[in-house]
Design a protein around this nucleic acid. Structure first.
Length: 131
RNA sequence: CGAGCUGGCCGGACAGUCGCUGCGCAAGCGGAGGAAAGUCCGGGCUCCACAGGGCAGAGUGCCAGGUAACGCCUGGGCGGCGUGAGCCGACGGAAAGUGCAACAGAGAGCAGACCGCCGAUGGCCCUUCGGGCACAGGCAAGGGUGAAAGGGUGCGGUAAGAGCGCACCGCGCGUCCGGCAACGGUUCGCGGCACGGUAAACCCCACUCGGAGCAAGACCAAAUAGGGGAGCGAUGGCGUGGCCCGCGCUGCUCCCGGGUAGGUUGCUUGAGGUGCGUGGUGACGCGCAUCCCAGAUGAAUGGCUGUCCACGACAGAACCCGGCUUACAGGCCGGCUCGCACU
């Protein structure tokens, strides 16, 4: 573990993901909410010292598996590139129907804008006590 | 060259970089589809049920073969469409039984007489002994109705007609020949000739079928609550009761079983791919060699950049296979048919 992976500034291992139902429940229970065109972002501070990402892409919103996979990939990719600027928060991303019809470029731009908003929102009003 | 039929195949390419995932100590290697889809069939694999047989129910439905199996595939037969290559077909039984058929039409199932034809025979009228009338009655050829009207053509026959008789064609039954068979042929004989249609109407016949599904199932197993057993201490305490017996509850230690969260497994080597040979018209079988080709589980197989071109469709594995069906930008290869032109 120590040898190769440590250098990856943009790595995205399992420690950066939400894995258990309980962790999702915790975020849903009390979250800050930001909306984009393609997705809705829920955030709640954690105590791990780094942000984590969880995806909740429902079949109801995006009927085709291809669209769901595409959205997940874009969300992960943008999170991967910006995650070092985020404080220690658990994020859950909910899909919106428009994501199915947006082009790759549109999706990418929308998501990047959303993460930027998240960085600003978390920086100013609530300077997290712990970290 | 132009129209068309048909079998098979491909499903952007390459490079760099940042990531994800499986295996591996590492270096590294592998990482969505022809439909991964719909979940419509058939199997494998699991667990449950099960002596045998029958009934009910469901499915299949020309024949033969292939297959683990099929509702699939191949070959053949029959029917229909097309000049043709070819394509399409729930394609068993209506001389077991029951039922159904709107409208039209005279009549629709062991049928019928509206128009029509005839009127020999009987009747009536005239009587020049020829005939006339269409009353009884006869007919089913022609017209008309209908999806369908109880073989066709010709000759004979007759008052007019009619399988009424005959010839040929058609049909049915038996026989014979070819074929494993479906079926075909038509040698011979018989029958004057219906046994109309409908079985995705009931039904009959033949064959097939137990149920549930990987969230199947197996294993490990916190916390909390609770169950069973043994031992220890006390011979106690609390409740019931006036009291004794009895009954119930109660302490500590250890063991056992069930089992939730969570985890592990099932989970990818298979009715497998490729090549060669071989049997078969073919589906496919057999033999040898060779290869290992996704295995995730909040769920990987992607983002960005560059170059090129015909500027990229439908679409994303979730236990695994065999089919079917549906979606699909564009392109490649083979075979064949028809038309035109030319040698």
């Amino acid at each position: 573990m120590a040898s190769g992976r440590a250098t990856g500034d943009y790595a995205f291992g399992s420690e950066l993901r939400l894995c258990e139902a309980a962790e999702y429940e915790r975020v849903f229970a009390d979250a800050r909410r930001l909306g984009g065109r393609s997705v809705t972002l829920l955030m709640r501070a954690n105590e791990l010292g780094h942000p984590r990402l969880g995806l909740a892409i429902s079949r109801k919103r995006l009927r085709r598996a291809v669209d769901r996979n595409r959205l997940k990939r874009h969300v992960r990719e943008t999170f991967r590139h910006l995650r070092h600027r985020l404080p220690a928060v658990d994020c859950v991303v909910l899909a919106r129907q428009d994501a199915a019809t947006m082009s790759a470029a549109e999706l990418h731009a929308d998501l990047e804008r959303l993460w930027q908003k998240a960085v600003h929102a978390l920086a100013s009003p609530h300077p997290d006590s712990r970290t």
